[in-house]
Design a protein around this nucleic acid. Structure first.
Lengths: 344, 344
DNA sequence: ATAATATGCGTATACGTATACCCTATGGTG
DNA sequence: CACCATAGGGTATACGTATACGCATATTAT
């Protein structure tokens, strides 16, 4: 029934030593109930002694499940160095941990949205499912998502959760966060609140945050002046430029809600250079609570997302999707962190 | 010779359509020279049409090479949330890109130094090699590294490069960086320079930076007072505490070289709270050039490491090691970024 | 012209695991 | 006591690829 043990231990070696057949070893180690307790214990002991570990490739090949998830991170199209959005980097930690907890490996890859990532990971059997991360312009590249759905690729995406979103999406309650920010600014007496961030279809999360702001203002009988909205992508430079454009428009404003901390930080620089006092002349709120937010001067009031929850939800939702379990669309609450930039 | 095409295309399907055998397909796609140009072109065309992609598991199983690297990241033992050292996160980007460039996948995993990571990835055939990242205490856990060497596991480690280091190590020129920092502080007239950071065997990188500082001071006929060295790990809190301890010691000092930006930022807070003016009373230099370094007030002079080079070197060194090619121990130069915290 | 290479490709098989299927002892049921 | 279910585990095989060999044909060398 067997052959003697060899170099790197295989299930055959264990079978030989335990006096059983290889399939029994496989069954025992995978927890099949059709193996007696005694046999199982014996096999487990031998496996431990030999430092045996299941060959991942063989296992995956046979079972067609890799127990690996792939994380595709979309960079903003800054072709230069590795200035990654700190927020997503933090989320990475959370995702990694949750994967480990669930017994899954995590494969990571940085992508440009315009590349062919949607076919690359499709069926080389590297992973059981895909997590898509980044402020990607899924509007323009909608076809790629549709391709994934068509191919029945299991994936989950971080972003704006709405009914017409394609595929499975997990995200923060951006509208609610916008409301939080707006209410806070209204509460400290601001009336002309500007928004820095792309408010188009191409950045649904930013759009949602703006929607929330408008809603809060409306609730306070204020109207959000469209002229006080300036497009910006999530970077310091973009925030700086947006704030300058805002100043150049000569429209008066006494508060800014920035769609991300990076934008806020850039804007603060522009405002300070223009001689404005923060928060006296202009109160400002950011989004993400990156580490730098507590280092600016004044320190930056911001909206904190639930990173830990996000990682857990992304992974668990994806695993449910992989297991063809029903998965309900869910949204994570946010928390307003009040700091000096809105302290009147 | 064949069977008709089926659901997910395999090399057999291509072989069938091309009228050749499966091994020929394998050879053609892998670039073996023993297949005619015409046949190869035909096979490649069909493969493209079918959207064929090599099954990674089968390929790895047969060839015993995974074309995957594993990145083990060691967290500082803060059991709380995902406050990861920004410096390493930045390096992650660089490593990821270099892996992609070399055609390798990257598996990522967060570990605690005291866990059994040294056996976990050992031979489940998940990866061809391992990258170890983090300010790990490799002194205490030396046995684990020795275990890896013993098992002939291919790995490379980021850290202090010295002759007695175990296994293959890639790192910055920490001593040289310390000299740079020291010379700069001396050049602006400082004479009592304190060092914040663990200077013991357990943190060889910090130790090297301190050594460099001492060397620069010696070259200027100054002596580094051991009483002006305070232990600290790389965190803001630790830096804050170390600076407080320094102040409490009542030893006069007019400059600080912190072993990391996080330490420096914490220290700045302590100094400011103590009523000291920066850089007038105390000049300060950090290390890493994290994004936050340009946001502090005053902005922080710091030592920038070559992240891009680090990622490239780590990956290439590991690949060389995997290919049993000779790999020379190398060290990366650093660059001093002068900002307000040392502007007199 | 014949032997020696080289070229291009088919045959057979191995990589290590998981699973479908089958067989043998039990033990309980009527 | 014949009957069937169940537990426990063996036999055979598939997963999809890569590679050692062998065998023709084509190409040189002698």
């Amino acid at each position: 029934m067997g052959r003697p043990p060899s170099a790197k231990p295989t299930s055959f070696d264990i079978a030989y030593l335990a006096g059983v057949s290889q399939p029994t070893v496989s069954r025992a180690l995978r927890g099949s109930k059709s193996v007696s307790a005694a046999t199982r214990a014996n096999i487990e002991r031998i496996a431990r002694e030999l430092n045996y570990t299941v060959d991942k490739n063989a296992s995956s090949l046979r079972s067609q499940r890799t127990h690996t998830l792939a994380l595709l991170f979309f960079e903003d199209p800054t072709p230069d160095q590795s200035m990654i959005n700190p927020f997503f980097l933090s989320m990475l930690g959370s995702i990694t941990r949750q994967c480990a907890l669930r017994g899954y490996d995590l494969l990571i890859s940085f992508q440009q949205m315009h590349n062919d990532w949607h076919v690359a990971y499709q069926d080389s059997h590297r992973s059981d499912g895909i997590i898509l991360l980044g402020y990607g312009d899924y509007q323009t590249y909608r076809a790629k998502l549709e391709h994934l759905v068509e191919m029945d690729t299991k994936f989950v995406r971080w972003g704006s959760v709405s009914d017409d979103s394609i595929g499975l999406t997990v995200g923060s309650d951006n509208i609610g966060a916008g409301v939080q920010a707006g209410e806070h600014l209204v509460a400290i007496g601001r009336k002309a609140i500007a928004f820095l961030g792309d408010a188009s279809d191409h950045a649904p999360e930013f759009q949602d945050r703006y929607t929330g702001l408008c809603r809060a203002m409306a609730a306070a009988a204020l109207t959000a002046d469209p002229a006080l909205q300036q497009d910006a992508v999530s970077s310091e430079e973009s925030g700086y430029a947006a704030a300058q454009a805002l100043l150049a428009s000569a429209k008066p404003f006494d508060a800014i809600f920035a769609a991300s901390d990076l934008i806020a930080i850039g804007a603060m620089r522009a405002l300070t250079e223009a001689g404005l006092r923060l928060p006296h002349d202009v109160a400002i709120i950011g989004f993400d609570d990156i580490p730098a937010a507590s280092l600016t001067s004044p320190t930056l009031t911001t909206v904190m997302q639930d990173l830990k929850g996000a990682g857990e939800l992304l992974v668990d939702a994806l695993l449910a999707r992989i297991g063809d379990a029903p998965v309900e669309r869910s949204v994570l609450p946010t928390r307003l962190i009040k700091r000096q930039s809105t302290a009147v």
